[in-house]
């Protein structure tokens, strides 16, 4: 499924790198721990997290993650947004908490 379809279906707000919406999403990963995402996420995953620290962009970039969903309406620091734009990572946000958005994406990708 295209990232743009997920964004549309779940009314996610796009914060960075709109061009990335054409990317294909093959699965998802939920975690707030960078080491866990480094160890266990897969290329093509969409990453659901509450973590907004700048380092999420580096992790996404290293792991081939094209899209990040920041949950629970959290504000994203300017430096994170800038880095995501530079590294071509699409960051989106939602007011839903992680459990809820994970559940909805699970049903979409099933």
């Amino acid at each position: 499924m295209k990232l743009s379809d997920i964004v549309k279906e779940l009314s996610l707000e796009i914060k960075t790198y709109k061009d990335g919406l054409q990317n294909n999403v093959t699965g998802a990963y939920v975690s707030d721990l960078l080491s866990d995402v480094m160890a266990n996420s897969k290329e093509g995953n969409i990453w659901i997290t509450l973590q907004t620290h700048m380092n999420i962009v580096a992790v996404a970039s290293l792991k081939g993650i094209k899209g990040i969903v920041i949950v629970s309406n959290r504000q994203i620091p300017e430096e994170t947004l800038k880095k995501a734009e530079d590294e071509k990572i699409t960051i989106t946000t939602t007011s839903m908490p992680a459990f809820e958005i994970a559940g909805k994406i699970y049903l979409l990708l099933k």
Partner: peptide, 20 residues
């Protein structure tokens, strides 16, 4: 006081704290 702002080192974040 801003939500999400933190000066915690990475190891603290890996323990589930320091999320600002």
């Amino acid at each position: 006081m801003q939500e999400g702002y933190s000066t915690a080192p990475d190891w603290v974040r890996e323990m589930g704290w320091g999320a600002g």
